[in-house]
């Protein structure tokens, strides 16, 4: 089904599926993204890390065809390009799974699975959805990913957040995506569900897809990532291969080193005021001690 691009014969670096080179995007006079470079290879996971407002969403929108970039180059399988619509990105094998708008909650699972690419049978006015095939395919594809739904007719909104992400990932894999872009797939999930989702991300990678994993959680990124790009306020502050960086260093860079130190001071426990029932002298003393 979804096959990765045959590796280039060149023994060195194979050609990336998607490559951003010094890409920038401006909204009016606001710099949303400037000078960002990123490579996505088949069978690898490229992580994009950054805090809120770092430009992660803008980066996704450029790769998935919602916005055009203003400067720099976007190469898909080596070819300079500029995506004009999500449809075009899909046609070129780039599927995006958004954190909050991945599915239509009130629609049944099987309708969501095929949304936008519905198979039909019959001709002319009798051209109709191949409902039996849609139901069956949805069930088997989800089973393959280890999701056992009792009823593919249930509205997808009744699934848990993790299951919904997995349906969206299974869908992208089924439709032959070469590149899977995941927007904070673990952001709203608990520890266990995050683990499940990351497992499917790894499964997609093993199926030969190139994965772009957007996240603000360095722990999740380091579990599965091969490449790490750090964004801060629209600019790229770091780009590392897995071999070149440790989790601690990644976390430190992600959290912004000194900023974390400042934050620690800010969050230091202040003494509870007496009128709220605090014990005046002693706790204040202790806090001071720990602070030093």
């Amino acid at each position: 089904m979804s096959t990765a691009k045959t590796p280039a014969p060149d023994p060195g670096e194979p050609q990336p599926l998607v490559e951003l080179d010094d890409v920038s995007k401006f909204y009016g006079n606001i710099r949303a993204l400037e000078g960002v470079s990123l490579e996505v290879h088949a069978g690898e996971i490229s992580c994009v890390l950054g805090d809120n407002g770092a430009g992660k969403s803008t980066l996704i929108k450029i790769i998935s065809g919602l916005h055009r970039h203003d400067a720099g180059t976007l190469r898909i399988e080596g070819e300079d390009t500029s995506l004009s619509s999500p449809r075009e990105a899909l046609d070129r094998g780039i599927a995006t799974v958004y954190q909050d708008l991945a599915v239509v909650p009130l629609m049944p699972v099987w309708r969501n699975f095929f949304l936008g690419s519905e198979p039909t049978r019959g001709k002319g006015p009798l051209k109709r959805l191949d409902v039996a095939r849609m139901r069956e395919t949805t069930r088997t594809e989800l089973l393959r990913m280890g999701i056992d739904l009792r009823d593919v007719d249930q509205p997808i909104g009744t699934l848990s957040g993790g299951e919904r992400q997995c349906v969206a990932i299974a869908r992208a894999v089924y439709f032959g995506a070469k590149v899977l872009v995941l927007d904070e797939p673990t952001a709203a999930l608990g520890v266990k569900q995050s683990g499940v989702v990351l497992k499917y991300v790894a499964a997609a990678r093993d199926a030969g897809l190139g994965v772009v994993l957007i996240t603000h959680n360095p722990h999740h990124a380091y579990l599965v990532g091969d490449r790490f790009v750090l964004l801060k306020r629209g600019a790229m502050t770091g780009s590392h291969l897995r071999a070149d960086i440790s989790l601690d260093e990644l976390t430190r860079q992600m959290a912004g080193g000194n900023e974390l130190e400042d934050l620690r001071h800010e969050l230091e426990r202040a003494p509870v005021p007496t009128h709220l029932g605090g014990h005046p002298a002693k706790p204040a003393q202790e806090t001071e001690n720990t602070g030093e």
Partner: peptide, 8 residues
């Protein structure tokens, strides 16, 4: 938004 994103 989801519909547009999947090509509807």
């Amino acid at each position: 938004e989801a519909a547009r994103a999947v090509g509807v």
